[in-house]
Design a protein around this nucleic acid. Structure first.
Lengths: 233, 233
DNA sequence: TGTACATCAGTGAACGCGCGTTCACTGATGTAC
DNA sequence: TGTACATCAGTGAACGCGCGTTCACTGATGTAC
């Protein structure tokens, strides 16, 4: 009847240790080269032992992806909630910079989520989607708040054609009660932020050094000016 | 003294056939999974035969990357030159849309250039850089033309700090005689375009369908409005 | 507190696989006289 | 035109490697009486 604390403790530690080692491996050799045997070797363990914690390689990858989305979502939520609800510009600014900061701090996680997919692996949507939607929903929620407050500048935004409004509705199901317009604007903002950060992570940028900070700040501010009117705060 | 036409013909054909098959393989299984044996199998050839054309696997990957950049550059140049030199907005619009069109038409090439790098492979800069610079130089040249014509809106652009202007100078060497400011603006434009297209290619966009066209057109127009004054054309 | 039993995390050997690369070879293609 | 020779693209066997996964096992940990 009484639990067996020691065993459980050990198990959990090893389960976490496997993921940690996997991250290190991904950082060094890239996600596609992730190997159970290599992880086991690094942990001083035999490869079959991993099967006590993950039924196969794909399950481990799935767990890693969910972890990455969760970590990403945590960062987004923390950034948003550091500013009061009414300060929409402040919140937007914060999550924009949090996006880059998180990506630079965890390039492996970023690569696993946004990079080229691991060959031969397809993410099981049902497991991954909730954590992904939670993360992306932060931006959507702020844009939607602006729309409700009447400070969203959408006059020049391309009209949502009937055909694709229907398609968006499906995506809406996962994003709470945000308006389709908010989703579209959020998507475009996300694309801009993602564009800079992905180039920076991939090392495709010329050696700007600290100059990238200035460019990024400029881009975030451009987004705010283009899409948001000044609020009361 | 006379040449041996038949042999050379065959050789060249096989050399090209290897690359073509490699592209198909990359399209199906992703660049990291590229395998000489698989290519040979698909061609009805034994693997060692490939060594008559490429000294090793990395050499083949390098050749593929250069081909991709060349194809990309061709598309950019053709788009730009379809409009007269004075019509800067027209040229910008054209290369912006050409970028997306090329990426959608050749997702494998796009992925190989901009996606997660092939694990264990490092591109030899000396071989790859010229074709890469040729491609990116198209956008730079148009922005630089605007700057010279005095129609580049750079008032609100972040000032180039001394430290990173020096770093940029190094990159400038490859980009002809464009101004540092033009390089910075071109980089930001590139990041925006790349942001949308890379999300679309990776399938990360919600099912917008044809709506993506409208969003993309909107984004291109936003860029033009933000950075360029009306010229004479 | 002490003994007999059950659990189950981790082991080590083995499987079948595909990979990049090497090597000595063969046999058709092309050349020289 | 005909023969002897050189070239060299492609072959087939072999190497050593690392991989994911299976399987029967062992031995320490924890449980029940």
């Amino acid at each position: 009847m009484s639990p067996r604390p020691r065993k459980d403790e050990r198990s959990i530690n090893l389960q976490e240790a496997i993921k940690e080692t996997a991250w290190q491996y991904i950082a060094k050799y890239g996600a596609p080269a992730l190997s159970l045997r290599a992880i086991a070797r690094a942990l001083g363990i035999t490869a079959p032992a991993i099967y006590n914690y993950y039924p196969d390689r794909d399950a481990l990858v799935t767990a890693l992806i969910i972890d990455a989305y969760t970590s990403f979502g945590d960062a987004q939520i923390a950034a948003r909630d550091a500013f009061p609800e009414e300060d929409i510009i402040g919140r937007l600014h914060a999550i924009g910079h949090a996006y880059r900061r998180w990506a630079l701090a965890h390039p492996q996680r970023y690569q696993l989520i946004f990079g080229t997919p691991v060959p031969g692996y397809v993410a099981p949507m049902k497991q991954v989607l909730p954590s992904a939607v939670r993360a992306f929903g932060v931006l959507v929620s702020v844009v939607e708040a602006a729309r409700r407050a009447g400070t969203l500048r959408a006059d020049s935004f391309p009209p949502i054609k009937p055909g694709y409004e229907a398609a968006l509705e499906e995506w809406k199901r996962f994003s709470g009660d945000a308006d389709v317009l908010s989703l579209s604007v959020a998507l475009l903002i996300w694309a801009r932020v993602h564009g800079m950060v992905s180039l920076e992570i991939a090392g495709s940028l010329p050696p700007f050094g600290a100059g990238v900070d200035a460019l990024y700040e400029y881009e975030i501010t451009s987004i705010e000016r283009q899409f948001f009117r000044e609020g009361e705060s």
